[in-house]
Simulated assay, not measured.
Amino acid sequence: MRLTRFASAATALLAAMALALTGSSTAASAAQPPATSYVALGDSYSSGAGAGNYDSGSGSCKRSKRAYPELWAAAHSPSSFTFSACGGARTGDVLAKQLGALNSSTGLVSITIGGNDAGFADTMSTCTLQGERACVSRVEQARTYIRNTLPGKLDQVYDAIKGKAPAAEVVVLGYPRFYKLGGSCAVGLSEKSRTAINAAADEINTVTAKRAADHGFTFADVTKTFTGHELCSGDAWLHSVTFPLGDSYHPTATGHSKGYLPVLETAA
């Protein structure tokens, strides 16, 4: 009789231990989500133009090992990582050339897009070379495009992403303000030109955030992380006019690691 009771107690103890171990294992599994498949789309603000250390195989796309998608992938070890972003890309380029890696298994997509559609390079060239009046006029032209035409272009891209990767979490990242107003720059663009350029950045972010939200995507705002690190701040995470010229007005490596990566980490 005593042996029977002992055996029953031992069996119960072993069962409790097994349950506890199983529960711990389940909790540990829940705390460690499975690796996801990550696809990085977009323009030069995603490819890393300006950050240096470019992948020689990426050619004019200038995909940098220091760009925020590479940094996120290195930190999180996704099950697969496809870096499709390309310097100079417009919405039409994303649709035509960058969506091939998306599928029903894609878990995360990041993208910056729209600046080139609105004439980013031409606007900054005009502002740099042609003076305040021409700058303000060109910025207003860009803002008119952002308000009236860009929303439809973004809808096409976001619809395509959702259609090809319906289960993916999509993080749409914005653009920083370029200038600290009243900052340390003694030469260069006028304060009126800098104010106009910052206003255009705010407008494209507002439009992009609305279109992203309407598609169920997350908009990741980088203006806060770049605050205090704009041009004329004394601690800029953006290039001013530099060589090569294509790196001008793009985030530095620090801009990617401290400006862009933290907002993607929070959003994803």
Rank of each mutant, 00 (worst) to 15 (best):
S77W: 01
G88Q: 09
Q130K: 14
G57E: 12
A7S: 10
A168Q: 06
V157K: 02
T242H: 06
E140D: 15
C127L: 05
G92F: 00
A28T: 06
K210A: 15
T26V: 14
Y54N: 09
N198R: 10
T126L: 00
Y249T: 07
Y145S: 08
G188W: 01
G52N: 11
T26I: 14
F217G: 01
F120H: 04
S137K: 15
A20V: 13
D202Y: 01
A85W: 04
D93K: 03
A200V: 02
E191H: 06
V157R: 02
V171Y: 04
T22L: 14
R5P: 00
R133D: 09
G87E: 10
A101G: 12
A51H: 07
S84Y: 00
A31D: 13
T82H: 15
Q98Y: 08
D155A: 12
A67C: 10
L173E: 13
L150G: 04
L108M: 12
S8H: 08
S257K: 12
V170L: 07
A31T: 02
T266Y: 05
R147D: 12
G59F: 09
I111E: 06
K224F: 01
A213G: 13
W237L: 10
S44Q: 08
T112E: 09
I113Q: 04
T91A: 07
S60C: 08
A96Q: 13
G188H: 03
W237V: 10
G59W: 09
N198K: 11
F83V: 06
A51C: 09
T22S: 14
A9E: 03
A67E: 11
F226L: 07
A16F: 12
Q98D: 13
C135A: 07
F81A: 09
A213D: 11
T218N: 04
E70D: 13
K162H: 14
S125T: 13
A267F: 08
V207S: 04
Y260L: 06
A35I: 01
T22K: 04
L238S: 07
F120G: 01
S24D: 11
G88L: 06
S184N: 13
D235F: 02
T266F: 02
D235A: 15
D221R: 10
V139E: 03
S47A: 15
G114T: 05
A31N: 12
G152T: 08
N53R: 12
R63H: 13
G255M: 05
A20F: 13
V187S: 15
G246L: 10
E203Q: 15
A168L: 03
S184M: 05
L41W: 03
